[in-house]
Design a protein around this nucleic acid. Structure first.
Lengths: 338, 338
DNA sequence: CTGAAAGCGCTTACAG
DNA sequence: CTGAAAGCGCTTACAG
């Protein structure tokens, strides 16, 4: 790896000139040519790490995730990566697999790696040690879980509202016994989704709800569908994509035909599947939008000391089958801390 | 962010002593105590970036992926991350979304970020510009695609052999018309899987194969299942997880009962689903194993200048339903370049 | 426009 | 055991 010094020698100019050239300043035309040639000859590649040392930047941001291998995580990572990389930043990816202690340790770890900003996906503010985020000097954004800290922005999706809307629709369609497969209530998102169900049925004493508590796995979706269908539900709502696959497997195996025998709705990732399953209500999370929002907000805070630090941005889900406006989810509600 | 210099001042020792302390050397006991106190008081956190400048290490490795949001990618990322992070390395994640030009550019990008090593997932050696990998000074590992370069190790899975074995089993069971939903043949992995099918039927002129070319999407799996089932296949094999979900959707919608009406086999990610779908043949990729192998091999090459650079490591898949030995996949075949 | 010099946070021979 | 100094690859006032 040739350094700036070697390039300077080869070009017959000072290292300062090389640096200026690399940063787009105008130099004497003949010098610029000599430098260009030297760079090509030596195959010089700049060292962004060294560059950052001087101005205390690393051009990298930390992305700390609860569970790297969840379906939603991947879409989030990929949308964040796209925005960040266009801006010349790289992503330091780290997972804590549901463990609060690991989450807290990895915050230090990423800080040690001198990240310029931090996005934390699905970490709960109540975990012991999370409060130290308040002392982090770089911008922090909490994704999918609220945070009270004054230096932390929050990006959320209104899962509660979406589920309420979906269940209300099922009730309006005349369903009387709705089965719910939910995720562990230790998770904020899972609580919100179940709360949406309860809000929807509150004023409908004639509607019965049966709930199965799954663990995010496909087998638990399978078992949940089995138990609930045996209790003669007329509609099934699955609060998580992976579990919905298990439920689908059960339906196939038991010969339960979706739409005909049972109304089936769930969270999903559509990739144009929507036209094939148009009789079905599907909640589609705006993964790309929230990821992009996080990335852009973080860049804003890194580069321009954005105003209203500590704001919350709330996105809507798209409910396929309810005639939602695809574009609506692009405009988050913004709540500014007063 | 307090620096080593401030700690030195607070502790009344030289910066060299702080550095030595941080790196685990023995100092005079009283000094160690003073340093420890100073570090705690100032909330000092080491700057790994600066540390690396001196010894030309960044304690980060680049992970360049074809498609970050594929199901397999995330399992790979997560297993690599686990090994790397235990060794004190962070992961710089980058995606090229199937675009050869982006892949080539991002190699430079990661090198600029001074990674200590590089793992490239599903990039084809034949792409223009990929040859420059030969000039990369840090260790490189190619995952899921072979590489001829002398400085590049390769980690592969024997998809061809697994598919051959699976299809042979279907034939032995008496199936005569096998439907295949395959992925675009521009991808190495897709070609290998289809080659496995053809190897299996080569000696069975009585067996008919019908092939549908999908595009990895669920809708294409749906459509493939529809077309093939209309051609009266008695077994269906789907070469990709996502497309198998679409096929499953079609079966449900068309009232085709898997196992009873149609033998259904495919690539999958099981999370203990295997006991629920035990009549079905499922190819499970050793994502954790290949990811871990990549990470460990890379660390080996970074830290010990490993022997036999340029080797190929080939793992087996596990075929659920064929009584495979779970442990067998942990031992890759190793081909050393002569 | 450009060179010489100081400095970013750290490490590591070299003396003592 | 420990301090002073040089240096990793770069940037940036400061002079000229």
């Amino acid at each position: 790896m040739a350094s700036i010094r070697e390039v300077a020698k080869a070009a017959g100019v000072s290292v300062g000139s090389i640096s200026r050239y690399l940063n787009g300043q105008q130099l004497k035309a003949t010098n610029m040519e000599k430098i260009k040639k030297a760079i090509d000859d030596l195959g010089y590649q700049e060292n962004i790490i060294a560059k950052g040392l001087k101005n205390n930047k690393s051009f990298s941001v930390g992305l700390l995730m609860n569970n790297i291998s969840s379906r939603l995580s991947m879409d989030i990572v990929s949308s964040i990566e796209e925005v960040m990389e266009n801006a010349g930043y790289s992503i330091l990816l780290s997972g804590f697999e549901g463990s609060p202690e690991r989450a807290v340790n990895k915050i230090d770890y990423l800080i040690s790696h001198a990240v310029d900003g931090l996005i934390i996906f699905e970490a709960d503010k109540s975990w012991p040690g999370m409060a130290k985020l308040a002392n982090v000097k770089v911008p922090v954004i909490s994704l999918n879980n609220p945070s009270d800290l004054p230096n932390v922005d929050t990006v959320l999706v209104d899962d509660r509202g979406s589920v309420r809307r979906l269940i209300s629709h099922l009730i309006a369609q005349g369903h009387h016994h709705i089965g719910i497969i939910t995720a562990p209530q230790s998770d904020y998102t899972a609580r919100e989704r179940l709360a949406g169900v309860h809000e929807a049925v509150r004023d409908h004493p004639d509607v019965k709800v049966s709930t199965f508590y799954g663990d995010y796995s496909r087998p638990s979706g399978f078992e949940g569908a089995q138990q609930l269908i045996n209790r003669h539900i007329d509609a099934l709502f699955v609060c998580n994509f992976n579990m919905s696959l298990g439920a689908l497997e059960y339906c196939n195996r038991a010969g339960v035909r979706i739409d005909q025998d049972l109304s089936f709705s769930h969270f999903d990732y559509l990739d144009e599947m929507s036209n094939l399953i148009s009789n079905r209500l599907v909640i589609q999370q705006p993964a790309k939008e929230i990821g992009g929002m996080c990335a852009e907000r973080l860049l804003d805070r890194i580069n321009h000391q954005a105003k209203d630090v500590g704001s919350t941005f709330i996105f809507d889900n798209l409910i396929v089958g309810l005639g939602d406006d695809q574009n609506a989810i692009n405009k988050p509600k913004i709540i500014t801390k007063s």
